[in-house]
């Protein structure tokens, strides 16, 4: 409720050169602050720093969230190394590798979107944001294709695990005992990651809309910046999940 209230606060100093109004239309008439600056910040720099620190703190908690899955992976892998190796063999490496490349490209386009935003190029920012969203959708499409195959082969978590031999990778021996644990971890890890991708698509779409609306400028691009930070984290988690689940024998 206090967003509009800063007008009365004559004691808040506004640094020189930050009194421009023209970048968006949020109704701060005769405002001492630039229009994108929330009332409780003194300078755009302070606002940007707060957003950055907040996002990094949030990313740290994201890492700790995934850490539980990684620890479970490490423990069960050390308990059942042969089972993990055999079960991992059923995952489709070329498709996984392709998906990894798709995500890496999406991180690049996200970084380029930030660069375009820093330069104040609205069209370029939108283009790269859309490309990032496109890559995310491709990733999810490929992932659902993989999931579908696992469902058909009965390679499912816990109680639902019932492998059909004719669906397994050709020439592989029957899966060892407790293989359901590998697929429990596989589905939990990639499932949580996919939820993060979905959230990322939502965030990037929102940022794209705000960009189209003209919220961002050379002076104010924090939204693009921190959305990209989030996206890089989602990418980074996959960079660890892919070798751990698909590659290590």
């Amino acid at each position: 409720m206090s967003s509009e209230a800063a007008t009365a606060d004559a004691t808040t100093e506004v640094p020189e050169g930050h009194d421009d109004h023209g970048h968006d239309e949020h109704g701060h008439n005769d405002h001492a602050h630039p229009s994108y600056l929330a009332h409780h910040f003194d300078t755009p720099q302070q606002q940007f720093d707060a957003a950055k620190v907040g996002m990094w703190a949030f990313l740290v908690q994201e890492l700790l969230f995934f850490s539980g899955i990684f620890v479970a992976y490490g423990i069960f892998r050390s308990w059942y190394p042969e089972m993990f190796s055999a079960a991992a063999h059923q995952l489709d490496r070329p498709i996984g590798a392709g998906n990894t490349i798709v995500l890496l490209v999406s991180s690049l386009t996200a970084a380029l979107a930030v660069r375009e935003a820093q330069l104040g190029r609205k069209a370029g920012t939108s283009r790269y944001l859309l490309l990032t969203i496109l890559c995310a959708l491709i990733f999810l499409g490929v992932k659902s294709y993989e999931y579908n195959h696992k469902f058909q082969a009965g390679l499912l978590p816990g109680h639902f695990y019932h492998p059909h031999l004719h669906h397994l990778v050709e020439g592989s021996p029957a899966l060892p005992e407790n293989a359901h644990i590998f697929y429990s971890i596989y589905f939990m890890a990639t499932g949580i990651h996919a939820i993060h991708i979905l959230v990322g698509i939502g965030v990037l779409t929102w940022i794209w809309r705000r960009n189209e609306r003209g919220d961002f400028s050379k002076e104010y691009y924090a939204g693009v910046d921190i959305a990209a930070l989030y996206w890089h984290l989602v990418d980074l988690v996959w960079i660890y999940l892919f070798p751990l689940l698909y590659l290590i024998d």
């Binding site: 409720m1 206090s2 209230a5 009332h39 606002q47």
Partner: peptide
């Protein structure tokens, strides 16, 4: 991230007496 002010979100739009 609380950076865009939305007029009228349950708040006064007039100035506050400090």
């Amino acid at each position: 991230m609380a950076t865009v002010a939305t007029p009228g979100l349950g708040g006064k739009t007039e100035a506050h007496d400090p």
